[in-house]
C-alpha cells in the first residue's frame, strides 16, 4: 500500500512527467527527421544548454530561497563586457584575469541585490527589475553598444579546446567544448551543497518558512547574502563562458533571456513560491526547453511561431507545476 502510493507518486512526479514529455518529443522529432536519432544530437543539445544550465541553476537557488532574480542578464553583460574591454585596453592576455574579474563584478552586483532584498526587504522581482535597468542602461551609456568581436588570444584558444570530438558516419564532426565542465561541476556542487550542508538546508528553510528558520537559529540574512552573492559570481562565470562560446563580448546579447531561464526552472519542478526545487529537475527543465528551442524548425514550425509556442508551453508547464504543488498541499493530511 505504502510502496504502491510511493510508486504512483514517483510516476507523476515532475521529473517523471518531463522525462515522458522528452521521450514523446524526441520520438516525434525523430520520426520527422531521422538525423535526429544520433549521438550528434546529444552533443548539439549539450552545447546549446551550457549557458542555460548555468543560469538556470543559479535562478533555481534564488527561487528556492524564496526570491527571484531578473537582473542576471544585465549582471552577465557587465561581467562579460568589462573584463574583455580591460584586457583589450591594457593588453592583458591570460585566463585568470577575465574569469576573476567576471566573478568579482558578478559578486559585487549580487551583493547589491542582497542588500536590497535581504536587508531592506524590497520585493525581489521589483528590486532586481530595477537593478537590471540600472546596470544595462549604465553599461550601454558608458561603453556604447559596440560588440567586442576581436577577443584576446587566450579566450579564443579556449573556444577551440574540446572535451571530445565525435565524427558522425556522414563525416561531419561534432565537438563538445571543454567549458561544458563548468555546468557539470556546478550541478554536482550545488546538489551536494543543497543536500548535505547545513547552509544548503538553510536555503530550503528560509524559502519554506522564513520566521521558523530564524527561530530555529538559521542566520536568515546571512544565507540570503550568500545566495545572491554566490549567484552573482556564478553568473559572472557564465558570462565569460558566453563570451568565449560566441567569440564576442556584447553588452546586450544576453538581455531578455530571463524569461526562458525562469521558465526552465519552474517547468523543472521548482515552486516559484520558494522552498522546493532540485538540481535534477532543473537539468530536465533546461533539457526540455533547449530541445524545443532547437527543434521547432525540424518539426516544421515557422520561426515566427516560435516565441508563441514557447510561451504557450511555458504557460502549460508552469500551470501544471503550480497545480501539482497546490494539489500536494491540499492532499489528505496524515
Amino acid at each position: 500500500m505504502k510502496t504502491k502510493s510511493r510508486i504512483s507518486e514517483l510516476l507523476t512526479s515532475n521529473q517523471a512527467v518531463i522525462i515522458m514529455v522528452l521521450l514523446v518529443l524526441s520520438i516525434a522529432i525523430g520520426l520527422r527527421n531521422n538525423a535526429f536519432v544520433s549521438f550528434s544530437t546529444v552533443v548539439i543539445l549539450a552545447r546549446a544548454a551550457i549557458l542555460m544550465l548555468i543560469f538556470a541553476l543559479c535562478q533555481m537557488l534564488v527561487i528556492i530561497s524564496g526570491g527571484i532574480d531578473v537582473s542576471f542578464p544585465a549582471i552577465a553583460c557587465a561581467a562579460m563586457y568589462l573584463p574583455v574591454k580591460m584586457m583589450l585596453n591594457y593588453e592583458i592576455d591570460n585566463l585568470w584575469f577575465p574569469f576573476g574579474m567576471a566573478i568579482l563584478i558578478g559578486a559585487f552586483f549580487g551583493l547589491i541585490n542582497a542588500v536590497l532584498i535581504a536587508s531592506l526587504r524590497i520585493p525581489p522581482l521589483i528590486a532586481t527589475l530595477g537593478m537590471n535597468s540600472l546596470i544595462s542602461g549604465g553599461l550601454l551609456a558608458f561603453f556604447g553598444s559596440t560588440e567586442l568581436s576581436r577577443l584576446p588570444d587566450r579566450l579564443n584558444e579556449m573556444f577551440r579546446s574540446y572535451l571530445f570530438t565525435y565524427t558522425a558516419s556522414s563525416g561531419l564532426t561534432y565537438s563538445l567544448t571543454i567549458l561544458f565542465i563548468i555546468p557539470v561541476v556546478l550541478a554536482i556542487g550545488l546538489s551536494i551543497f543543497l543536500r548535505y550542508t547545513t547552509m544548503g538546508r538553510g536555503v530550503y528553510a528560509i524559502g519554506g518558512n522564513r520566521s521558523a528558520a530564524r527561530i530555529a537559529g538559521f542566520r536568515v540574512i546571512r544565507i540570503q547574502y550568500f545566495v545572491y552573492i554566490f549567484v552573482g559570481a556564478v553568473v559572472g562565470i557564465g558570462a565569460m563562458v558566453s563570451c568565449i562560446l560566441n567569440r564576442a563580448a556584447s553588452p546586450t546579447n544576453l538581455m531578455g533571456s530571463e524569461m526562458m531561464i525562469i521558465a526552465a526552472v519552474v517547468v523543472g519542478g521548482t515552486r516559484i513560491t520558494g522552498g522546493h526545487g532540485s538540481v535534477s529537475g532543473t537539468i530536465l527543465g533546461v533539457t526540455l526547453i533547449a530541445l524545443i528551442q532547437n527543434n521547432l524548425i525540424m518539426l516544421g514550425i515557422p520561426t515566427h511561431w516560435q516565441p508563441f509556442i514557447l510561451g504557450f508551453l511555458i504557460v502549460l508547464g508552469t500551470a501544471f507545476t503550480s497545480l501539482k504543488a497546490m494539489a500536494s498541499m491540499k492532499q489528505a493530511k496524515v
Binding site: 538546508r201 528553510a205 519554506g208 518558512n209 521558523a212 527561530i215 538559521f218 498541499m329
Partner: peptide, 19 residues
C-alpha cells in the same frame, strides 16, 4: 509550531540540533 512545510518529518526534527 515554527516548522518547515517543505521538509521531511525527520529533517524537521533534526535540523535545530545541527544548528
Amino acid at each position: 509550531f515554527a516548522v518547515f512545510p517543505n521538509m521531511s518529518v525527520a529533517e524537521n526534527i533534526g535540523i535545530n540540533r545541527l544548528l
